[in-house]
C-alpha cells in the first residue's frame, strides 16, 4: 500500500511549522513519528497535500521537571517515556502506560504528541493523561494555550486542537509520593490497542483514599474521567467491598462502543473488570 502523492517539508522550529500550517491550511498534516498518520495515509483514509515534518525540532524533544510539573515534549517517543527515570519518579503511571503501547518497534518511533493528536479512541495515552490531570500545551499563529487533557479528547479522531495549532508539550502535575497509580488494559492482540484501558491515580493515607481519578480509554468514542467510580473511592477506606462497589459503577454514564472486537455488553463487563484491576494495582503500589 502506497500513500497518495504529497509534498514534504521539514520544519526547523515550532514557529516555522505553525507558519507552514497557516500557509497550507487544511491541505497540510503534521508528521512526527508517523506511526498513526502513515498507516492511515497508506489506506488512503488520509490524503494530505503536504506533510510538515516536525521530528527535527529539538525543542519538542525531551522530558524535564519544572518545579512540581513534569513536562514531556511532544516529539518524545513512547520508548523514551517508558525508560525515563524522571517519569518513573514523577508520574509512574505514564511510564507504565508507555511500556504497553504497541510493541518495541512502535515505541521506538511513535511519539506522545503524534498519538494524542491522532486521538484514536482505543489509544492508551488519553486515559493515563486524564487520570494524571495533565494538560496539553499547543502553539498556533495566535500564540500558545493549554488545554486540560479531559477537554482535549473530543471524539473519534477528534481533539480540541484548532486549525493551525501544533502540540508542543504535555504538562503533568507530579503524582504525590503517597499516591498509587496503575494502568491496566485488555489488548487487541494484533494491533495492541486497548479494547478497554483503565488508569487509576489514588492518593492514599494508609488505607484511606483522599483523592481518586479513574479514567477509561477504548470504552466510548473518546477517553473520559469516570466521575462515578472516582467519587465512590474518594474519602473512603478502600476495603474489598468498597473497591468492588466502585468497580461495578464503571462506565455507567458512558455511551459504550460495540464493534467486531467486543460488543457493548462485553466492553461494559471489561470496564468493570479492568477498573477493579487498576484500582487494586494502584493501592498495591501506593
Amino acid at each position: 500500500m502506497i500513500p497518495a502523492a504529497f509534498d514534504y517539508q521539514k520544519a526547523s522550529s515550532v514557529e516555522e511549522a505553525v507558519g507552514l500550517l497557516k500557509e497550507h491550511g487544511m491541505d497540510a498534516k503534521i508528521l512526527a513519528g508517523g506511526h498513526s498518520l502513515i498507516p492511515a495515509m497508506k489506506l488512503r483514509l488520509n490524503q494530505p497535500g503536504i506533510l510538515i515534518d516536525i521530528s527535527g525540532i529539538s525543542e519538542l524533544n525531551g522530558i524535564k521537571v519544572d518545579g512540581n510539573t513534569l513536562v514531556i515534549g511532544a516529539n518524545t517517543t513512547h520508548g523514551a517515556i517508558a525508560k525515563s527515570a524522571e517519569v518513573a519518579s514523577s508520574a509512574p503511571v505514564l511510564a507504565a502506560t508507555a511500556g504497553v503501547i504497541g510493541d518495541v518497534q512502535i515505541r521506538n518511533k511513535g511519539t506522545i504528541g503524534g498519538s494524542i493528536a491522532h486521538a484514536d479512541p482505543a489509544a492508551d495515552w488519553p486515559a493515563a493523561l486524564i487520570a494524571c490531570n495533565s494538560s496539553i500545551e499547543v502553539m498556533g499563529s495566535g500564540g500558545s494555550r493549554t488545554i486540560a487533557a479531559a477537554d482535549f479528547f473530543v471524539g473519534i479522531y477528534e481533539t480540541a486542537l484548532e486549525d493551525g495549532e501544533v502540540i508542543v508539550a504535555i504538562h503533568v502535575p507530579k503524582v504525590p509520593g503517597t499516591a498509587g497509580s496503575a494502568y491496566e488494559k485488555f489488548f487487541q492482540p494484533a494491533s495492541r490497542f486497548a479494547i478497554v484501558g483503565c488508569a487509576a491515580v489514588l492518593e492514599m493515607k494508609d488505607n484511606f483514599c483522599t483523592s481518586a481519578r479513574v479514567a477509561f480509554t477504548g470504552v466510548a468514542d473518546t477517553a473520559f474521567l469516570d466521575e462515578k467510580v472516582s467519587a465512590a473511592l474518594e474519602n473512603q477506606t478502600l476495603d474489598d467491598a468498597t473497591i468492588k462497589a466502585a468497580s461495578e459503577l464503571a462506565a455507567s454514564d458512558a455511551e459504550i462502543l460495540g464493534d467486531h472486537f467486543a460488543s457493548e455488553e462485553y466492553r461494559q463487563h471489561l470496564a468493570k473488570v479492568f477498573a477493579e484491576r487498576a484500582i487494586r494495582a494502584a493501592i498495591a503500589n501506593a
Binding site: 508517523g34 506511526h35 497508506k42 521530528s55 518497534q105 521506538n108
Partner: peptide, 13 residues
C-alpha cells in the same frame, strides 16, 4: 541502533 518497522516510515524520514 533502534528496531523500527520500516513499512510505516517514509524514506525521507
Amino acid at each position: 541502533g533502534q528496531a523500527v518497522k520500516c513499512c510505516s516510515l517514509l524514506a525521507v524520514q
